[in-house]
Design a protein around this nucleic acid. Sequence first.
DNA 1: TTCTCTGCAAACGCTTTGCACGGAT
DNA 2: ATCCGTGCAAAGCGTTTGCAGAGAA
Lengths: 141, 141
Amino acid sequence: MLHIDNIEKYLRDHEISPSYQRKRIFEYLYNSKKHPSVNDIYSFLIDDIPTLSKTTIYNTLNLFIEKNIVDSIIIDGNELKYQICDSKKHGHFKCKSCNTLYDIQIDFDNLNIDSLKGFDIHEQSFYFVGICEKCKNNNKV
Amino acid sequence: MLHIDNIEKYLRDHEISPSYQRKRIFEYLYNSKKHPSVNDIYSFLIDDIPTLSKTTIYNTLNLFIEKNIVDSIIIDGNELKYQICDSKKHGHFKCKSCNTLYDIQIDFDNLNIDSLKGFDIHEQSFYFVGICEKCKNNNKV
DNA sequence: TTCTCTGCAAACGCTTTGCACGGAT
DNA sequence: ATCCGTGCAAAGCGTTTGCAGAGAA
């Protein structure tokens, strides 16, 4: 797991001038165990920053993506989710019942997929949808 | 690869009354090597069926999905792509250069991912983005 | 007739764009 | 004074919904 002890420095190191909004958005992403959407970020920060607009969140996230410190993922097709880039590649499992998005560690390097021979891979994504163990036990789905 | 020799019967067998539009949309999906979007289907069929509307394509595809004969996939986050359901699970590789979407055969059963133990998996998706061999050779990207 | 299918028009939700104000340097 | 970040308002785009007319049985 990526460890950052100084967000302001981290942003500067990635050529991002650390405005208050940008720091708070990054901080929320960094501390979040989930993979928040723009609305999640907005709902969380609006109490602290009453003037905050979603445009700023979109601007900021797109800047972060451009500077390669944040990734966007899409599971359902409705809204984008964001997460701090992590060198360790992982996939996702989305529980249909509780809507939790779990990180799934996958050893991509050992996949050895024949049909990918000769292709340059820049990005990869792997996800599952189903029912998580917790919901299976609680709700007997 | 799924083989269907009578589309009308295939639709009836899946509780779908085979209207002309539905047959043509299914036929296009079935013959298409790509994974067409609604716009792809519309562009292809509009010459033959000048009254065709995108609403009908959406209606039809959603009906097909409901009846489990078509899957929708999303790679980029902008528009949905559709494909005939195939029992053999596969992933996708999207070439950034030529925008081709390749099917990638993956042995999902042998993945043995520890963190998925105890989870019920209903859907799974696996994709890569990068440069395909053809584009590497042609354009020396 | 009755029921289903089609397709126009409008609505919807997420994201982007245009632009002007305000703060920092 | 200049530059950059912010945020309102509007536009954009893919998809869904409302609804009425056409067509099948």
